[in-house]
Simulated scan of single mutants.
Amino acid sequence: MPNRSLNTHLFHQKDSNVLSWNIRYQIAIGIARGIAYLHDECRDYIIHCDIKPENILLDADFTPKVADFGLAKLVCREFSRVITTMRGTIGYMAPEWSSGVAITTKADVYSFGMMLFEIISGRRNLKQSKDGKAWFFPTWAANKVISEGQPVLSILDSKLEGNADVEELTRAFRVACWCIQEEAVQRPSMGQVVQILKGLLEANPPPIQSYLQSLVENEKTENFFSE
């Protein structure tokens, strides 16, 4: 893979080698298609368990390849979930990993959502300051765009200088927010993610309380997409 990992381009490249928005968006769609294939099209479906930028390799045309299946689980179609030991990388692991419940493909969806925030922003999702306090980018981004009503361009990687398709950026932001919902049932499937990113389905505005840790419980069921 001549263009190495996505991680290299997002966090370690000089400004002159920054990935354009168009390339980032196509990479996001390509990754989503790859994970959807693992979940929906294999004879026995595969839960990757470690989706992160370091495990996305880029060929000469920046076409992404999902790599490193060392932690993956192969699951028979007769079963929708599997009990397994904790796997993955801190910062990308779904909440259910720590609760000991059976894992489904929605664990990969959560990891994809976390990575999609990084593709959008060009910064790590979790950053610890010198005084020991943690700064969580998805929470900050959701608060800025949804609570404060700031334009979605405000969370874009500053190195892109605002050069992005706003409609695509909005789609990507909404998908990322839905993918990291605390309850797995509220997250979309990767097939739905592909359709949203390609503009075939429209994502509804995501509920804000899930990632702002609001004390107010939302009693109505949230729907991810509308026809």
Results as ranks from 00 to 15, higher is better:
residue 85 T to I: 12
residue 218 N to E: 06
residue 189 S to T: 15
residue 203 A to T: 05
residue 153 L to E: 12
residue 110 Y to P: 01
residue 161 E to L: 10
residue 180 I to S: 08
residue 217 E to V: 14
residue 166 V to C: 06
residue 83 I to F: 09
residue 66 V to R: 05
residue 103 I to G: 03
residue 13 Q to I: 04
residue 181 Q to V: 10
residue 18 V to S: 08
residue 77 R to E: 07
residue 57 L to A: 12
residue 38 L to E: 08
residue 180 I to D: 11
residue 168 E to D: 09
residue 117 F to C: 03
residue 33 R to M: 03
residue 211 Y to C: 15
residue 203 A to W: 00
residue 65 K to M: 06
residue 99 S to L: 05
residue 98 S to D: 14
residue 172 A to E: 01
residue 63 T to W: 00
residue 2 P to H: 01
residue 59 D to G: 07
residue 161 E to P: 03
residue 214 S to P: 02
residue 131 D to S: 15
residue 4 R to M: 08
residue 221 T to V: 15
residue 221 T to P: 02
residue 108 D to C: 06
residue 135 W to T: 15
residue 20 S to M: 00
residue 22 N to C: 00
residue 115 M to Q: 02
residue 27 I to M: 07
residue 36 A to T: 08
residue 174 R to C: 10
residue 169 L to W: 06
residue 156 L to S: 10
residue 3 N to C: 10
residue 178 W to C: 04
residue 126 L to R: 10
residue 195 Q to I: 00
residue 131 D to L: 13
residue 7 N to P: 02
residue 119 I to A: 02
residue 8 T to M: 12
residue 118 E to C: 01
residue 80 S to Q: 07
residue 221 T to C: 11
residue 2 P to C: 04
residue 83 I to C: 10
residue 176 A to Y: 01
residue 77 R to N: 08
residue 80 S to D: 15
residue 80 S to V: 07
residue 94 A to D: 11
residue 61 D to F: 00
residue 48 H to Y: 11
residue 51 I to L: 13
residue 2 P to S: 02
residue 140 W to C: 06
residue 209 Q to L: 07
residue 206 P to L: 04
residue 164 A to H: 04
residue 63 T to E: 09
residue 122 G to D: 12
residue 52 K to Y: 03
residue 30 G to W: 01
residue 16 S to Q: 09
residue 116 L to W: 07
residue 161 E to K: 11
residue 163 N to V: 03
residue 131 D to F: 14
residue 17 N to R: 09
residue 85 T to H: 08
residue 45 Y to E: 12
residue 140 W to G: 03
residue 142 A to K: 07
residue 126 L to I: 15
residue 91 G to A: 14
